[in-house]
């Protein structure tokens, strides 16, 4: 009996968390008048809503922009993060501790205070409406640095010394010696920064007004609240599905990594 209650609660939870997505996917294929129902099936399924979305907004271009911006951001966060993390963890230099405290302090600054000045900086540099504006402020993640530093501290000094004797530069040590041993942390930081970049809306809305440079979540947001969807729910849900699908597919392949990264970021951050 107890087991039955347990499982019904668990299944109820699964329905609460998963059904809305299934419904959204089904509804995006239905004609507008059928959308109000609970059913996940309709005999009138078609891709008409999607055709409309593609006709009304450059969503393919936005997808490309998002992939580009998120990839460059992720690459940059991982590369710079491990360089700085390595220096903090394994090298001895004047001001090391001060720098580490500075990084910890930076993590505590709420973005509300820097949002407007950062936008002003973009304006002053004359780079609003550019990929650079989308990427630059997130090229380095302090959380990433801290996670790399933590992990690199656990790597045996002997390995690094051996590489040094072989004449390896610091760069070679980081990327050829340490990286292969640090897969978990590299993957964690990469997933976190990719997701953060992929799902970011506020910053793109502020610095990009040019349609061809908009990111996927940005264009879907503006499509929904601006007049272009004409309050047609089918179109909005189709656009939302297009935005959700890539990340859901990635999640279904790498769910373990996703869950571990998100949870560890919360615990450490």
């Amino acid at each position: 009996m107890k087991q039955i209650i347990k499982y019904s609660l668990l299944i109820l939870g699964a329905v609460i968390f998963a059904y809305p997505f299934l419904w959204m996917f089904a509804a995006s294929l239905k004609p507008e008048i059928e959308i109000g129902g609970f059913s996940l099936w309709s005999s009138n399924f078609s891709f008409k809503n999607y055709e409309q979305v593609f006709a009304r907004i450059p969503i393919a271009r936005a997808f490309f922009n998002s992939v580009l911006v998120s990839s460059i951001t992720t690459l940059s966060v991982v590369v710079f993060g491990s360089m700085i993390g390595y220096a903090l963890a394994r090298l001895n230099f004047r001001g090391r501790n001060a720098l580490y405290y500075l990084i910890l302090f930076t993590m505590m600054i709420p973005f509300q205070i820097t949002l407007i000045p950062q936008y002003v900086l973009m304006v002053k540099l004359g780079i609003t409406d550019s990929y650079l504006a989308l990427i630059a402020p997130t090229m380095i993640s302090t959380l990433g640095i801290v996670m790399f530093r933590q992990f690199f501290m656990s790597i045996p000094q002997a390995l690094i010394d051996a590489a040094r004797i072989d004449g390896c530069s610091d760069f070679k040590i980081i990327f050829a010696v340490i990286w292969p041993l640090s897969r978990p942390v590299v993957i964690t930081v990469a997933i976190l920064s990719f997701m953060a970049s992929w799902n970011e809306v506020l910053w793109p809305i502020i610095v990009v007004r040019e349609r061809t440079l908009m990111t996927l979540p940005q264009i879907v947001t503006l499509f929904t609240i601006g007049g272009q969807a004409e309050a047609l729910l089918g179109l909005q849900l189709a656009a939302a599905t297009l935005l959700a699908l890539p990340i859901i597919i990635a999640y279904s392949f790498f769910q373990r990594y996703f869950i571990d990264s998100m949870v560890s970021s919360g615990v450490k951050g």
Partner: peptide
């Protein structure tokens, strides 16, 4: 020709464009 970028309002877009000199 390029339609005004979509947003909640045209005025918001033009204001940002004036600020960004775009």
């Amino acid at each position: 020709m390029q339609p005004i970028p979509v947003s909640q309002s045209t005025e918001e877009v033009l204001l940002a464009a004036i600020a960004g000199r775009t």
